[in-house]
Amino acid sequence: MTVLVVTNDFPPRQGGIETFVRSLCDELSDVVVYTSRTSGAAQYDSSLPFPVVRDRTSMLLPTARVTRDVVRVMQRVGADRVVFGAAAPLGLMGSSLRKAGARRIVALTHGHETWWAGTPGARRALRRIGDAADTLTSVSAWCEEQIAPALSPDAAARMRRLTPGVDTSRFFPDCGGEQVRKGLGLEGVPVVACVSRLVARKGQDTLIQAWPRVLAVVPDAVLLLVGGGPDRARLEELALSTGVSHAVRFTGAVPWEDVPPYVDAADVFAMPCRTRRFGLEPEALGIVTLEASAAGKPVVVGDSGGAPDTVRHGETGYLVDPYNPVAAALRITELLTDPARAKAMGEAGRTWVQAEWTWSSSGQILRELLDLR
């Protein structure tokens, strides 16, 4: 029973959805991927244990031509199960693939579908996607609450939670943080790290605004901002104008495979993510928070969208108002000045992730949804 994964989001492109889809493929015994063209794909694809078919375009859309090509591949490889890596918009091909022989269709949602659910024309398209699929999945309770009202009652009743897992063999305590600290000249100083793209939604500016209050309590604390993105120039100006540029370090973009040591370099992980654009741009989940917990770090996370699913408040870390730098500073200084509490929260976080956020459990759910036995 071959599974055809149809996705616009697949490595070597980097991102949360790409990692999610790629990792789920590893949980399927017979899989073929149909995806978009991207630089470096040939070398990457040659290293995979399953075949990848690249479309001629760099952006997959559910056009008549793409639908015909997907049907041809589905029939050529004998696939009768289909997974859409992101439900919107590719799930609009669902009814055509069903007519072509797909017995089970699972469409993954991640977060941008909440925007579809709240926009009239897109909402109707999302309803069609839900009706064509056997199951729409959601990554968090919040996402399900936002998406379900846009679906037909039958489709809403068929929704299932399917969360990303965390590779605890990559993210674990002492997985290279000391080497990163040494390379950055941060040995022996308290470090708070935010590992994320530099975009307004992730809240790095809230951390910079909080930093004068952090330094008042922990004078040698350093804020390590790991990642690249369009907001860097604004954040650098903010650090300068706030008078904390000497205590804020920007690493620039870090390759996906090199991320774990940067997480491990932190004493505290902080990402006060927030909802923007009148609710249309939320944090759907925030897998990096769980990766930080897997590395044994206490976390400070913004209360946005599905982010509360990634922290047990008061046990593995804290939820904070992402628009309140004072609140962020309070929790960060609390953890930096109480190493015993920080260590206990980090240990509790790793135990929780190991028990409840594994790729094997996510794969088992997907196999059940696809009726693979």
Rank of each mutant, 00 (worst) to 15 (best):
S361A: 15
L90C: 10
A117I: 01
G118L: 08
K99Q: 15
A86W: 03
W211K: 00
R56T: 11
T275V: 03
N324C: 12
M1Q: 04
P272S: 13
R350S: 11
M59K: 12
V77I: 14
D154K: 06
V6Y: 02
V299Q: 05
T275I: 01
P261L: 13
E347Q: 15
T2I: 01
R213M: 14
P212K: 01
S152P: 10
E18T: 00
F278T: 01
E236W: 09
R161L: 13
M1N: 03
P325F: 07
R103P: 01
V53G: 06
R213P: 01
L97P: 11
A307S: 14
E18D: 00
A342R: 11
G243T: 09
E257M: 07
A122Q: 13
T242I: 09
I332Y: 10
K297W: 04
G243I: 04
R56G: 03
G85A: 09
R54P: 05
E18Q: 14
A295I: 05
D80S: 15
V33A: 08
G302A: 12
S95A: 15
E347T: 15
G346Y: 12
D174Y: 00
F171H: 09
S29D: 15
L238H: 04
G252Y: 07
L225N: 11
S293K: 08
P230G: 03
A193E: 07
V53N: 00
S138H: 15
P219L: 02
R22S: 03
E356G: 13
C273P: 02
P219Y: 02
L61I: 09
E368H: 14
L28C: 05
A355L: 12
V83Q: 06
I332K: 04
A41Q: 13
K297N: 02
P62A: 14
G227N: 07
